[in-house]
Amino acid sequence: MADNLLTVRNLSVDIRTSSGTLHAVRDISFEVKRGETLCIVGESGCGKSMTSLAIMDLLPKAAKRNASEIRFDNMELHNKKKTIASLRGDRLSMIFQEPMTALNPAYTIGDQLTEGFRRHRNSGMKEAQQRAEYLLHKVGIASARERLSQYPHQLSGGLRQRVMIAMALMCGPELLIADEPTTALDVTIQAQILLLLSELREEFGISLILITHDLGVVARIADRVAVMYAGQIIEEGPVADIFNDPRHPYTSGLLNCIPLPGKTVPGGKLGVIPGVVPSLIGDIEGCAFRDRCAFAQAQCHQNPPVNQLAQHSWRCIYKEAAHANTH
């Protein structure tokens, strides 16, 4: 569609290991519209971060990416390393999961903020520093000019994450990928960072892919949600549909793990999903969730169909939601 900023079709990521090939991402497809926030949610190890790294072409050497299409603003990026290198850090930016390891401890905050801007905009140091100071102020950092001469270890975790956000915004990106940007922060700072991302998206008209395992975060910020399990997107749709009418048993199980004010009895037990995520090494057949699913049947050993209802899709043999919607 014309209003899609990013289109991904049939993306897979395979990683060579001593035990065999790990199928980290398995044939996923999705779109991100202009100005939209897509949240990719799922348990740790389900392929969320690998998906973001594949889009940015930042996968480890042992990983191999395959896709029929990765298109950004009508530019094909798959197997176009020079094209994506020219976009990365400019029109495409990423906030990494842990700011202390993403920031170089040997360089000042100012050096790291201005490097990409000077490269992509061919600007002088003065202009780059002015841009950096403006964005540090924009993301809520006081005494922005003084911060430029400081090193990462001199900043708190919350300030380092704000620096990472400012760095991602230096060149005015159209698409921002945030890979669990609040994981290492305390609850109060998490809320501040999420509010900041939401405000920046509105102000600068950015499309946002937010990767998280926190459904509370999803409820506050998402327009659409893609639920991943074992390297696949098993359900996708508008945030209201996912929360109010989950169609896949795994999505329903995730929602049942969340305490609800006024409904969850204090001290009562929350829902759990029994079992563990299956190994993604070697051949995978049928529904990967079947061994943990209370509704599994013999046909779940075959690849499940993708059901579609308006903008809501889910990968399950069941077309109806009554069995899964226990939340």
Rank of each mutant, 00 (worst) to 15 (best):
G267R: 03
H137G: 15
L53T: 07
R119T: 12
V218N: 02
G253N: 03
A2I: 08
E133S: 13
M1G: 09
H78S: 10
R118C: 13
V8A: 11
R121H: 13
N256Y: 04
K64N: 14
L148I: 06
T51A: 07
T21Y: 11
D186T: 00
D73N: 15
G268N: 11
E133D: 11
K80L: 07
L196Q: 01
P173S: 05
K319H: 14
I177Y: 05
S52T: 12
T212L: 08
Q129A: 10
Q308G: 05
M56W: 07
Q297S: 13
L210G: 05
T182F: 07
L196R: 01
T108M: 02
N307T: 08
V277D: 05
Y134W: 13
A168H: 09
A230L: 02
G271E: 06
V227Y: 06
L103S: 00
R292G: 12
L148T: 06
H153R: 13
N104H: 04
Y107G: 04
E31L: 01
M1Y: 03
P99W: 00
S18P: 04
A67S: 12
F295C: 08
R247S: 14
L280M: 11
S29K: 08
L87W: 07
A168L: 10
T108G: 01
E285C: 08
V265F: 11
T17L: 03
I70G: 03
D186K: 01
P261R: 09
T51C: 06
E180M: 05
H213M: 05
R118A: 09
L53C: 07
L92T: 04
N66V: 10
G237R: 10
C257A: 15
K82C: 09
C300L: 11
I211K: 06
P60F: 08
N325F: 07
Y318P: 08
L200Y: 06
G271C: 02
V139F: 00
T188W: 11
Q311E: 15
C287N: 12
A184W: 04
E174D: 15
H23E: 03
A142S: 15
E146A: 14
C293L: 12
V217H: 02
P105A: 02
A324Q: 12
I95Q: 06
G282S: 00
I209P: 06
A184R: 04
E235H: 11
F30S: 05
R118P: 08
C257N: 03
R145C: 10
Y250H: 07
I55S: 06
M164R: 04
K64T: 15
M1W: 00
E31A: 07
A298M: 12
L200M: 12
A310Y: 12
Q112G: 01
C171H: 10
G267T: 02
D111A: 13
R147C: 11
D111Y: 10
E203F: 12
D57K: 13
E285Q: 14
E174S: 15
A178F: 05
H153W: 12
F117M: 11
Q129G: 10
N325E: 10
A144N: 10
L255F: 03
A222T: 01
S86Q: 14
T17A: 03
Q192V: 01
Y134N: 09
D186I: 00
L309V: 13
M170W: 09
L280Q: 02
S68D: 15
A102D: 04
G268R: 12
Y107T: 03
R224A: 11
L210T: 01
A2M: 13
P105M: 02
S68Y: 07
V277A: 13
D291V: 07
V218R: 01
I141S: 02
L22I: 00
L59K: 05
I258E: 03
V239M: 13
K263E: 15
